[in-house]
Simulated scan of single mutants.
Amino acid sequence: MVWIPAGDFMMGGDNKQASADEFPKHKVRVNGFWIDQTEVTNKQFAAFINATGYQTTAERKPNWEELKRQVPPGTPKPPDSVLVAASLVFKPAKGKVSLNDYSQWWTWQKGADWKHPQGPKSNIAGKENYPVVHISFEDALAYCKWAGKRLPTEAEWEWAARGGLKNNIYPWGNEPVNKGKPKANSWQGNFPYKNTLADKFYASAPVKSFNPNAYGLYDMAGNVWEWCADFYDYQYYSTINKPNGVDNPKGPAISRDPDEPYAVKHVVRGGSFLCNDSYCSGYRVARRMKTTEDSSMEHLGFRCAQDK
């Protein structure tokens, strides 16, 4: 782990790519804390599984009684062929598609989980140093508890990602992601059908494949999205925008997303190997995304934090 010193910063969007939920930019102070130098790896997660026998969300059959609380009343039960142990796996489109329809590049893959990232015929042999993926919020909490750690707050995550730079767009500064030498594992080319592989990686990359930020943290941009402890509220920043700043914000009391009002969501940060300026620009330090607690995907992992 790396020690991140206490400090204050302006949290929120830094350029015209910022979404409405990244504003208003507001002053935040955080106490010093420890954070993992890298995303949790397959090797680290395997040690947790071997010690505890834990079964991840993706390895369990979904419970319709739990799922239906996340969808509008009256939503019909999916067929039994869908309610199987599965997870979301990336499948490239054959050509240009609407970027508003993620079903064009995600498939619900039976048998996909942390040990089988692309489905039952895949495995993680030789990928011990890759970030563990297909991790739900519940899975991340279980690992943190076992390791004596916790998930970082959203404010801690952004403060750490900025690496001491003030009002910069990326962990490395302001040079665009596709200028100069590759700085993060992202999607180069035309998403979601043509990747030029300028960074040499189509999917996730081993941790520490790219230079760290000024705090010595790796992959705070790209590679895989990372869970934060906070609930997601699209208007949260406006509630903590105080002239004198706010100390150690922990996130809203409840989740609020007008796109899916019944779903309970948490913040994910950092972007992934699928991020591209045409789609999500997730490698920006201020970029906020949200997903349901039971979500597990091929590009979703985490790193842990710890108090002094």
Rank of each mutant, 00 (worst) to 15 (best):
W3S: 13
A6S: 11
M11A: 10
N15K: 09
S19E: 14
E22T: 12
R29T: 09
V30Y: 12
E39W: 12
N42A: 07
N42C: 13
K43A: 15
A46C: 15
A47Y: 15
A51P: 15
G53P: 14
G53E: 06
E59R: 13
P62F: 06
R69C: 08
Q70V: 04
Q70K: 10
V71S: 03
V71W: 11
P73C: 03
S81Q: 03
A85P: 01
L99E: 00
N100D: 05
K110N: 01
G111K: 06
A112C: 07
I124R: 09
P131A: 00
V132I: 11
H134A: 03
E138V: 05
A140I: 06
L141W: 12
A142N: 08
R150P: 02
E154G: 02
E154Q: 02
E156I: 04
W157M: 02
R162Q: 11
V177F: 08
V177M: 10
N178G: 04
K181W: 04
P182R: 00
W187K: 01
W187N: 02
F191W: 02
Y193V: 00
K194Q: 00
K200M: 12
A205N: 13
A205E: 07
P206N: 05
P206Q: 03
N211C: 05
A221G: 15
A221R: 12
E226P: 08
A229F: 15
A229T: 13
F231E: 04
Q235F: 10
Y236C: 12
Y237I: 14
S238V: 12
T239G: 12
P243S: 11
N248R: 09
K250N: 11
D257A: 06
P258E: 09
Y262G: 07
V264P: 07
C275D: 13
D277M: 02
Y279E: 01
Y279V: 06
S281H: 03
R284Y: 00
R284A: 03
V285C: 08
T292I: 09
M297R: 14
A305I: 11
Q306C: 03
